[in-house]
Amino acid sequence: MTTAVGRVGDDRLAASPARRLGRLQREGRAAYLFLAPALLFFCVFLILPFVFAIVLAFSDWGGFDLGTLKWAGTANFGDVLSFDGTFVKLILVNTLLFAFGSVFLATFGSVLVAYCIDRLAFQGFWRVLYFLPVVATVVAIGNVWKMMYQPAGLINGVLNKLGVNSIGFLSDASYALPSVTVVQAWASIGGAVLILTAGLKAIPEMYYEAAEVDGANSWHMFWSITLPLLRPALLFVLITQFIGGLQSFALIIVMTGDGGPVNATNVAAFEMYQRAFKYGAWGTASAMAMVLFVIILAITLLQLWVARRRGEETS
């Protein structure tokens, strides 16, 4: 009777429904106490601002006095989404190009690098090397690349050595967006490599052995074994980085200051930031945020739907 197991058994036998209910209630009270800090936080810093963001998107308000807030209906969305304005035609296009471009480069690069690292010794060392930019602040990344892009910087120095004329990577409007896109890709490649190498490790060795017996070369193995089996990890990387790319603008503030030259690198989240905190147009800015949020939400839900469908396929 002194062992824990025996006492658990006795307790179960002796517990009347009423006593069990009492224990559950106590556990429920404890649970909500444990959850209290988190729930309180989410009320103040998540639900409240989220509701506020929706209200702001439908209102006309400048300044800081809540008393002057006026209902504006969908007027803000009309302004933001009008096809003559810069938001849809220029800024949203920039946003998509920036996100697509950086995801394409980072995914292509990380698949190649992860596939190669998987074949080498010192894999941990290589992964950490590619992961370094993820640890650095965006201020460091942005300024270093700004420096390297300058006429007297490293990249133009190399180009000049090769007999190519200097390029105004950040000053020429046709190069500026591709230039910041490359930096975004460079900074996000390390995280993708980590997830993809984990995905590669999960592919059973015997598939490769069987393919080798059948006389497949590395190229065949990559296309018919590695890539299809890597698809879940690859899809995850693609979608999370695309969502990240759609909302990131810290790099653009650091590298171009104002989204220039002449709006060439202006993206939706940055335009929202400027409208709000430079011009105090809370309504317009919030409508922009809402448009971008709906786009991101649609992509997120698509990802969840694809993941769930795959789950049903395999189970």
Partner: peptide, 26 residues
């Protein structure tokens, strides 16, 4: 509550930037 916690991760930070700033101010 668990589903709610998962859903909180879907709210992008930029969306809450303006209202959170105004909340801090007031």
């Amino acid at each position: 509550i668990f589903r709610f916690i998962l859903a909180t991760m879907m709210l992008p930070p930029f969306l809450l930037l303006i209202p959170t700033f105004l909340i801090m101010l007031n």
